[in-house]
Simulated assay, not measured.
Amino acid sequence: MRCRLTLLTAARSSALLDARFDDDRPLDHAGWQEIHYRAPVLHGLAAAGLRYRSPTERCRETGHALGLAPLAQPALRDCDMGRWRGRTLREVAAAEPEAFDAWLADPRAAPHGGETLTGFITRIGGWLDTRPLEEDGWMMAVAEPAVVRAALCYALRVPPDTYWRIDAHALATVTLTGSPRNWCLSCD
């Protein structure tokens, strides 16, 4: 059996603009405007049989604003950034340049004391592979950009450093089709 999963990145918040690690801020004014502008294009996502979301406030607000009523999934949380949580990329790079460089260079490194990139990708892949299978079933999930990037790395079986080459903009969609450990990127 095959199913379809559409991933929608949450609308923006000030944490995205600041490039903050794992900072659960609500949508900002521009994020609400983006939803209003894109809602006519995204309204069809409400037809998905199962609707999920990352447990962050901005994913909850995005899903609610689009009338999706998605179910929070703890496994879809952002990467655990340990002591770097809430700090900006610039702050961490300035305060801990060697640790920051190691984190970027080695997907198994966790100098922040949190989750490794490979662990994060594996966790998101585990969530993908446990979705219920219904013939021609359609699911959707509102997720953080990092979660969407991790899902794509897992689904496409690419090296973990590919994660840094995927750009997931606010309110972007991507669809995966398939079954556990056999996912494909679907271009509509």
Rank of each mutant, 00 (worst) to 15 (best):
A94W: 07
P55F: 07
P26T: 06
D23P: 02
R20V: 00
L89W: 03
R60C: 03
R77L: 02
L42F: 08
E96S: 09
R85C: 06
L89Y: 06
G63K: 07
H29K: 15
R53M: 03
E61K: 03
L66C: 09
R53V: 02
A99K: 03
Y37C: 07
L68M: 07
I35F: 13
P70I: 05
C59Q: 13
P97K: 07
P55N: 10
Y52P: 00
G44P: 01
R25K: 14
R53S: 12
R38N: 02
R51G: 02
A19C: 08
G86T: 09
H43T: 10
R60A: 15
P97D: 08
A69K: 15
E98I: 05
L45H: 05
M81K: 00
G63R: 07
Y52F: 15
E91P: 04
H64F: 06
G82V: 04
E61N: 00
R58L: 09
A99Q: 09
H43P: 00
G86D: 08
Q33G: 06
W103Q: 01
T62I: 04
E98Y: 13
A75S: 14
L76R: 00
W103D: 03
P26H: 13
R58Y: 10
H29G: 09
P55I: 03
H36P: 00
E91D: 05
W103S: 00
L89M: 05
H43Q: 15
P97G: 09
A69E: 15
T56E: 05
A102E: 15
Q33M: 12
A72C: 09
P55R: 13
R58T: 06
D24G: 14
P26Y: 13
A39S: 07
W84D: 03
R53C: 12
D22W: 10
L76W: 03
A69R: 14
A102V: 06
D80Q: 03
T56C: 04
A102C: 13
R83F: 07
A102R: 14
R87I: 01
R90C: 10
A48E: 04
D24W: 14
P26W: 10
S54T: 04
R51D: 04
I35D: 05
E96Q: 14
V92A: 00
H64A: 14
H64C: 08
H64Y: 10
L50P: 01
A69D: 15
C79E: 10
R25V: 07
I35Y: 05
A69L: 14
H43G: 03
L66E: 10
R87T: 06
D80G: 11
D80S: 08
D23I: 02
L42G: 01
R77P: 00
P74T: 02
D101K: 09
R53A: 14
D24T: 13
W84S: 02
R58N: 00
S54I: 02
A75Y: 13
G82N: 03
A72F: 03
A75V: 12
G86Y: 14
V41R: 12
A39P: 06
L66H: 09
